[in-house]
Amino acid sequence: MSYNSRASSNPKYTVNQNIVISRRGSEGHCRTPSYIRGKTGRVERYCGNFRNPEQLAENIKDADIIPLYRCVFYQHDIWSNYLGSKNDTLELEIYEHWIEPA
């Protein structure tokens, strides 16, 4: 795993912006569950900047401090066979480098 430059600490996305979670694989430790990759939702809030856990897991002492967001998704947009109400939602925290504009 390589990180060519220090990540920007200015949040790129705004509240309520439609976004999609990157649909790509990962190696090592990562906090983006596979079930949410490739799914479309929106930014619920910007949580502040935190150290990149993917680097922390490798004992990289000066791990990048990067923007973290809470993103919200309709359950029906995540699971094709979701059985509950169409209003049901799921929220989770996603680091900026896993987010793309929708």
């Binding site: 906090r31 983006t32 569950p33 949410i36 949580c47 502040g48 935190f50 856990p53 973290l68 809470r70 359950q75 509950g84 109400s85 209003n87 049901d88 939602t89 799921l90 929220e91 989770l92 925290e93 996603i94 680091y95």
Partner: peptide
């Protein structure tokens, strides 16, 4: 009830 939204929080990072 079906009329109420269920919101799941997957606590996966720093919150």
């Amino acid at each position: 009830p079906e009329t109420k939204e269920v919101k799941v929080h997957d606590s996966n990072a720093d919150m």
